[in-house]
Nucleic acid binder design. Structure first.
Length: 703
DNA sequence: TCAATCCGTATC
DNA sequence: ATACGGATTGAC
C-alpha cells in the first residue's frame, strides 16, 4: 500500500526546487515513513533527500524510479518543520534544500543507534495526538496574511492547566509573578498556558532577569504538556537561559542547541528533541528550526542582534523564521529585548502583535539615572589626546559607584567601523538626495557618492540644518586600561572584549571595560555605566546605526542598579540627539516608532521590502534590467562594491569588479518580489549562469 | 551520409 | 550538475 514516496531531493538549484516521486520497494515500505532520510537516483547521480509523504499514486506522468535506500528509519524532518522550511525558502527566494541544510543537522549514525536504547529507557510515551497535525494549508508568510487572531483575551484567573497535563506531572506551573510588572504580561502567560496563539513584543525592564522570564514562559508551556522554543543571539545568552531553565524545569525536559557543540552532541540533542523526549529547546539561530513537538510558544530575545541573521543562503533571520513558525503551528510568539527593533515595532503598529511593556512608573523605578555628557565627548572624539579624558559627569558617576562598593561598566565600541560621512555642523548622517542612501567617500580627493544608488553628490546640502560641509565621523579612540587606571589608581581593571569575554564580575569595586555584547554580568548590578564614543556608534554608515546604538546602550544600562540605589549612566553623546533622548527617557517603544516613521519617510526597510543582487557588474545590471519588478518597485544602482569602503569588520577583497543593485518595493508586494527573484534564479540556474549572482531578501547589511 | 558539436531541456 | 535528444555543422 502507498507505493509512492514524495521526496525533497537535496539539490539547491532553483529550477529543481520541487518534490520528486519515487517508488518504494516492499522491503523499504515499513522504514519509508515521512521525515526519514533517503538516498535516491536523480539524473543519474545518487543524492540524499527527505521522504515527505507516502502516496497511493504519483501525479508524475513518466516512469518512476525506486528509492535507492532508506538511510535510516529515524524521522528527522517533521511535517511542521518541512512546511516551515518551505515557507522560509519562499519568503527568502531560496530553495528548500538550502533551508533544510540549516534546519536538520548532519546525521551521526552511532549517536542515532545508542540514542534508540536511551529512548526506550526513559523517553516520554509518544503523544497520541501528534498524529493529528493539521494539513499543510497554512499560509503564514507575512504580517497581513497571518490568520491567527491577534487579540489577547483579557480572561485571567486560576489555571486550568492541571486538567490538561498529558505527561506525568513533574513539570510544575512556575511562578510567573514577575511578568506582572508588564502590562498584558500575565495575560500573555495565561494565553501560553492555554495554548492560544497570541503574539507579543516585549520590552524588558532595565535590570530584568530576562532569561528567568523566558524560562518561566517556557515552563508554563511545558506544564500544559506542550513545547516551547527559545532563541537567543549567542552562546553567552544561551548559558544564562540554560541556567534559568534549570530552575524551573527538570533537566530531562529541555536541551540547549548551539553551533559549537560538535557533530555527535549536536545530533544527540537534536534527536532528543525530534523524538519528543524534551519539551523545551533553547538555542542560537539554527534552533529556530528545532523540531519541538506540540509547540505552544516560540520566543526570541534581542532580535536586533545581527547574529540572528543566518549568513548562509537564503539568509533567513531567526525572528522571521519564528514568525512563520508561530503562524504555521498556531503557537504563541514572543519577540523580546530591552530595546525594540523597527521590525518589532512594525508588528505592533500593524496590530499583528501586542506590546508587553511596563508602565512609566515601573520604568522609573527600575531604571538608573541617565545623563548625557555630549560636549565633552564631541571635542574629545576628535583628538586622541583629549579622548583619554573622562567627562566630569562620567568621572563623578564612576567614583560614586566605586565608593558605594560597586563595579563600573565602561562600554567602548569595537574597532573597525568604517568611517561614514556626516553633516559637519549637526552630525547627522549625510544622505543621498536622490534615494536617501548613505553617502561615502570612494577615495581621497573624490566626490562623495551614494552607497546605494551610486549618484555622485557634488554639492552636499544637509536636509536638517542646511550646512554644506561634510566630515568623516571619527572612530572613537578606545580608551586603554592604563588611561582609566590613571584616573582611578588602585581600582582593579577588568577587560571583556574580543577573545577574552568575561561572563560575570564580582560585586566589588572595579572598572570593567567591555565592547558591546561582551558586558559581563555584575553580581548585584553595576553602580554606573559609562557609554563612551557615542558618536562613533551613531555615525556608523549603517541603516540601523541609531537603532543599534540604542540597543547597545540599553543592554549596558540595563545592568546598572536603579536610580534609587544610586545607579547612574553617562552617555557620551549630545542630549539633543533623539537616540540619546530615548535612552534618557528609557523609551524603546517611542524610539522604535520614530525609527519606523523615519524609515517610512526615507523608504527603508522594514517600511518597504528590499532585496539585493550582488555579483559581476554586467550580470547584476542585466539581471536587474530583465527582471519584472512588481508595481511601484524601484531599482537602485548598480553600484560597484569595490569602489566603496567595506562595511563592518569583514575584509572583502575577493569581490573585485563586483557590483550590487538594490530592489525596493512596497511591503504589499514583498511576496511578488520574492517570487520574481525566485523566477530569476530559476531562469539563471537553467542556463547554468548561476553561482556568481547572490540574491538576498532583507539584506542585513545595507550600509 | 555520418559523426562531432551545440543548444535546450529534463532530472521522479 | 549531468544526461539526453534534436538540430546544426563540417568532412568525406
Amino acid at each position: 500500500m502507498l507505493p509512492v514516496a514524495r521526496v525533497a531531493v537535496d539539490v539547491s538549484l532553483a529550477h529543481l526546487d520541487r518534490t520528486f516521486d519515487y517508488l518504494v520497494a516492499d522491503g523499504d515500505s515499513e522504514a519509508a515513513q515521512p521525515g526519514v532520510r533517503v538516498r535516491v537516483r536523480f539524473s543519474g547521480r545518487l543524492l540524499d533527500g527527505y521522504l515527505l509523504e507516502r502516496l497511493a499514486k504519483s501525479d508524475h506522468d513518466g516512469r518512476l524510479g525506486f528509492l535507492e535506500r532508506v538511510v535510516s528509519p529515524e524521522p528527522v524532518l517533521t511535517p511542521e518543520v518541512a512546511r516551515l522550511a518551505r515557507a522560509v525558502a519562499d519568503r527568502y527566494a531560496g530553495s528548500l534544500a538550502d533551508v533544510l541544510r540549516l534546519a536538520v543537522p548532519p546525521r551521526h549514525a552511532r549517536v542515532e543507534a545508542t540514542g534508540v536504547k536511551a529512548a526506550r529507557v526513559h523517553a516520554a510515551p509518544v503523544d497520541a495526538d501528534l498524529a493529528d497535525v493539521e494539513p499543510a494549508d497554512v499560509e503564514p508568510a507575512d504580517v497581513e496574511s497571518a490568520d491567527v487572531e491577534p487579540a489577547m483575551a483579557e480572561a485571567e484567573g486560576p489555571t486550568t492547566a492541571t486538567g490538561r497535563l498529558e505527561v506525568p506531572g513533574e513539570i510544575a506551573i512556575p511562578d510567573v509573578g514577575a511578568w506582572g510588572a508588564y502590562r498584558a504580561g500575565n495575560t500573555f502567560l495565561t494565553a501560553v498556558r492555554q495554548g492560544r496563539p497570541v503574539r507579543a513584543v516585549w520590552q524588558a525592564l532595565p535590570g530584568e532577569d530576562w532569561p528567568a522570564r523566558l524560562a518561566e514562559a517556557a515552563a508554563t508551556a511545558a506544564a500544559g504538556g506542550r513545547g516551547a522554543l527559545l532563541v537567543v543571539p549567542d552562546a553567552r545568552d544561551l548559558q544564562r537561559v540554560d541556567a534559568a531553565l534549570a530552575h524551573v524545569l527538570p533537566a530531562t525536559s529541555y536541551v540547549t542547541l548551539a553551533a559549537d557543540l560538535g557533530p555527535a552532541e549536536r545530533y544527540r540533542r537534536f534527536l532528543a528533541c525530534s523524538r519528543g523526549q524534551v519539551k523545551v529547546v533553547a538555542g542560537t539561530r539554527a534552533a529556530a528550526f528545532a523540531p519541538v513537538r506540540k509547540l505552544a510558544l516560540v520566543a526570541v530575545f534581542d532580535d536586533g542582534d545581527d547574529l540572528l541573521a543566518e549568513p548562509r543562503a537564503p539568509y533567513p533571520h531567526a525572528r522571521e523564521v519564528l514568525m512563520l513558525r508561530s503562524a504555521g503551528e498556531k503557537c504563541a510568539l514572543l519577540v523580546g529585548g530591552f530595546a525594540r527593533t523597527a521590525e518589532a515595532e512594525l508588528l505592533v503598529a500593524s496590530g499583528w502583535a501586542r506590546p508587553v511593556v511596563a508602565d512609566r512608573a515601573g520604568v522609573r523605578a527600575a531604571a538608573p539615572r541617565i545623563e548625557a555628557a555630549g560636549d565633552e565627548y564631541a571635542t574629545g572624539a576628535d583628538s586622541a589626546a583629549a579622548g583619554a579624558r573622562l567627562s566630569p559627569a562620567a568621572f563623578a558617576a564612576a567614583r560614586g559607584a566605586l565608593t558605594a562598593g560597586r563595579p563600573v561598566l565602561i562600554q567602548v565600541p569595537r574597532r573597525g567601523y568604517s568611517p561614514a560621512l556626516a553633516c559637519a555642523s549637526c552630525r547627522r548622517p549625510a544622505r543621498c538626495r536622490h534615494c536617501s542612501g548613505p553617502l561615502a567617500l570612494p577615495g581621497a580627493n573624490r566626490l562623495p557618492v551614494c552607497r546605494w544608488c551610486g549618484v555622485v553628490e557634488a554639492h552636499f546640502n544637509c536636509s536638517a540644518c542646511g550646512s554644506h560641509e561634510l566630515r568623516t565621523t571619527a572612530i572613537g579612540a578606545r580608551r586603554t586600561a592604563e588611561e582609566l587606571g590613571r584616573a582611578f589608581p588602585g581600582v582593579p581593571l577588568i577587560t571583556s572584549a574580543g577573545e577574552t569575554v568575561r561572563a560575570a564580575v564580582p560585586a566589588e569595586p572595579a572598572l570593567v571595560i567591555a565592547t558591546p555584547g561582551a558586558e559581563p554580568l555584575a553580581d548585584n548590578g553595576y553602580g554606573a555605566a559609562l557609554l563612551l564614543d557615542g558618536y562613533a556608534l551613531l555615525g556608523r554608515a549603517d541603516l540601523r546605526a541609531g537603532e543599534e546604538t540604542l540597543r547597545r546602550w540599553m543592554a549596558a544600562a540595563a545592568l546598572v542598579v536603579p536610580a534609587s540605589a544610586g545607579g547612574r549612566v553617562v552617555v557620551g553623546a549630545d542630549t539633543s540627539l533623539p537616540t540619546v533622548q530615548a535612552l534618557i527617557r528609557w523609551d524603546p517603544a517611542g524610539a522604535a516608532a520614530a525609527e519606523l516613521a523615519a524609515r517610512q519617510e526615507l523608504g527603508f526597510p522594514p517600511a518597504v521590502a528590499m532585496a539585493s543582487l550582488q555579483g559581476p557588474e554586467a550580470e547584476v545590471g542585466a539581471a536587474a534590467g530583465t527582471m519584472p519588478l512588481p508595481g511601484g518597485g524601484e531599482v537602485l544602482g548598480p553600484v560597484p562594491l569595490d569602489d566603496l569602503p567595506s562595511s563592518g569588520s569583514r575584509a572583502r577583497a575577493r569581490d573585485t569588479g563586483a557590483a550590487r543593485v538594490l530592489l525596493r518595493v512596497p511591503n504589499a508586494e514583498r511576496k511578488e518580489l520574492a517570487s520574481a527573484l525566485k523566477t530569476l534564479a530559476a531562469a539563471r540556474s537553467v542556463h547554468k549562469e548561476d553561482g556568481n549572482l547572490r540574491i538576498q531578501i532583507d539584506p542585513s547589511e545595507l550600509f
